[in-house]
């Protein structure tokens, strides 16, 4: 299984946490739109997420056009888990490092 970049992982995590629309993912991750969207397109191309369109009627009820929402696919869930495990394993090592580089 391929490990994901931190950017990709944090986007997947944002989706898992409930940010299913593009701009919500931007708000949750704090990443710029020019980073999030290409990354989303790439994740979709590689099969980690899939997108569907929001129900037209629901949107119209709120007086706005329908939005595109993203969900993790099974490979996406596995990739996120694997990536999270990997970064978590790094954490103790990070904790042992001095706060600043060598003076």
């Amino acid at each position: 299984m391929r490990r994901l970049s931190l950017t990709a992982a944090s986007i997947l995590q944002a989706i898992v946490d409930g940010g299913v629309y593009g701009f919500d993912i931007i708000d949750r991750t704090g990443l710029p739109s020019g980073t999030v969207y290409p990354a989303l397109s790439r994740l979709e191309r590689d099969g980690y997420v899939k997108s569907t369109w929001e129900d037209e009627d629901d949107a119209r009820a709120e007086g706005r056009p329908a939005r595109r929402n993203y969900q993790l696919t099974a490979p996406g869930v596995r990739a996120l888990a694997e990536t999270t495990r990997h970064y978590r394993a790094l954490l103790p090592a990070l904790g042992r490092m001095p706060a600043r580089g060598r003076a």
């Binding site: 629309y21 593009g22 701009f23 931007i26 710029p32 739109s33 020019g34 980073t35 999030v36 969207y37 290409p38 397109s41 949107a59 709120e62 007086g63 706005r64 056009p65 329908a66 939005r67 595109r68």
Partner: peptide
């Protein structure tokens, strides 16, 4: 357009939305 409309609807400023729209060019 839907995302920008949503942003507009929840009152995000024009400049901030334009900055976000620049991401569309990159995309």
């Amino acid at each position: 357009e839907a995302e920008l409309a949503f942003d507009h609807g929840r009152g995000r400023g024009g400049t901030a939305r334009a900055a976000r729209a620049v991401g569309a060019v990159v995309h």
